[in-house]
């Protein structure tokens, strides 16, 4: 049961850790969902073709970094609206992966499968990565020089420029890190969690990651805790699917909606409130 919960939480934790870095730098990345989807496809297909899971994971990360660069080009450099760019990226990813899926698998709609990585002390190695990631991200954000300037870029960009540091450059770097984490999250989803590939398999995890970041108040350890909690709900619903409760058998869709319902309720209870980076979602323009 614990192994299941952990596995369920892995993609969410990884993606949310990336989102923490991005949001701390002042970028709200709606395109998270698309990056996970692309990561899932690239990771899976590359692993399948090369026969090496490590190469699959690596290329998924590369794809995520590239997408992070692309969306930051639009949002930080060209100063387009972050929500619009993110949404466009999601639609693009959905379309591109659907086409790739049809070409690769044909129209049959069947799932592809892959052999999972050999377990390490009973768990998939990627689980350890996810367990370590909150500590690493926390350390990078709070205990390095780079982290301080990233956080300041999300709070009050003029102070960063006044200190002689480029805000746009910091945002690019943060988006690359965040994109890489999303790519990794996607590959973990297809290779480690499902062991198969399906259309639209990210199934809202990117949006959940955004909710979880708010839920965890932009602090890596809290966010990881929140992601784990959603993972628990997800694992529980998976287990109870199809079972009758007090003589009533809830429809499958209701069970599947449970993690999202949980996230919604938590968000509702906590609200936006204090703790959000002050410059979140705003492009920085030196002249203004």
């Amino acid at each position: 049961m614990i192994a299941t919960i952990l596995l369920f939480s892995v993609p969410l934790i990884l993606a949310a850790m990336g989102e923490v870095v991005g949001q701390r730098a002042g970028m709200i990345d709606i395109g998270q969902e698309g990056k996970i989807l692309i990561g899932a496809f690239v990771g899976f297909i590359v692993a399948k073709i090369t026969g090496s899971l490590i190469v699959g994971y690596a290329l998924a990360v590369v794809a995520g970094v590239a997408l992070g660069c692309l969306s930051t080009w639009f949002t930080a450099k060209l100063q387009l609206d972050q929500v619009v760019v993110g949404t466009a990226l999601n639609l693009l990813a959905l379309g591109a992966t659907s086409i790739a899926f049809r070409i690769y698998v044909g129209d049959s709609g069947k799932l592809l499968s892959i052999d999972k990585a050999p377990a390490l002390f009973g768990l998939d190695p990627v689980v350890y990565l996810a367990i370590l990631s909150p500590a690493v991200i926390w350390f990078v954000l709070m205990k390095t020089s780079w982290g301080l300037s990233v956080r300041a870029s999300g709070e009050y960009p003029p102070a960063v420029e006044a200190a002689g540091i480029s805000v746009i450059r910091r945002r690019f770097e943060a988006a690359m890190l965040a994109g890489g984490m999303s790519g990794l999250a996607g590959a973990a989803l297809s290779i480690a969690l499902s062991g198969s590939l399906g259309e639209g398999m990210s199934a809202g995890r990117g949006f959940l990651a955004i909710a979880v970041v708010t839920f965890g108040r932009w602090r890596a350890p809290w966010v990881a805790g929140a992601a784990l909690l959603i993972g628990v709900i997800d694992a529980v619903q998976y287990r109870f699917q199809g079972q009758a409760i007090l003589g009533f058998k809830p429809p499958l869709q209701l069970w599947q909606a449970l993690p999202y319902l949980g996230a919604l309720l938590i968000l509702f209870a906590l609200g936006r409130g204090a703790g959000a980076p002050a410059a979140l979602g705003r492009a920085y323009n030196k002249e203004r």
Partner: peptide, 27 residues
């Protein structure tokens, strides 16, 4: 006239931010 300070950060962090060019790696 308009301060270049990050309101959400501490005094210490603001001082550090301004000297960040002299430091890489660990904060």
């Amino acid at each position: 006239q308009h301060f270049a300070l990050v309101p959400a950060m501490t005094v210490e962090e603001n001082f550090a931010l301004d000297r960040l060019w002299s430091s890489k790696g660990l904060l």
